[in-house]
Amino acid sequence: MASNDASTGSGPVETAIREKLTTLLQPIELTITNDSWQHRHHAPMRAQGGGSGETHFSVQVVSDTFQGKNTLQRHRMIHSALSDEFAQGLHALSLKAKTPEEVQST
């Protein structure tokens, strides 16, 4: 726990998210942000003494594998890949999942 540095280093959960999503999606772009510090005071985190420091993440990912899938399906793909992390205390995951074409058109 003490080795987690919220500002710079990646903790084990973040590393696992990165590895699993890289394998699953072969992303062109993958940005993972740890937002856990913003949520230390909300009720479920207080119950765990502020949480582990790796409870809330934002993920922005661009991948060809999202082609032909709607947002719900894309999110489900990611959730399935991270079911272990969710089972072990990952609490919230904010997702932006796009195809390369969608990124260009915005």
């Binding site: 719900l72 959730h79 609490h91 995951l93």
Partner: peptide, 15 residues
Amino acid sequence: WPTVPQVYINGEFVG
């Protein structure tokens, strides 16, 4: 779906 909140419209899970 692993997180809350969850929204249903007319019985269908929306997200």
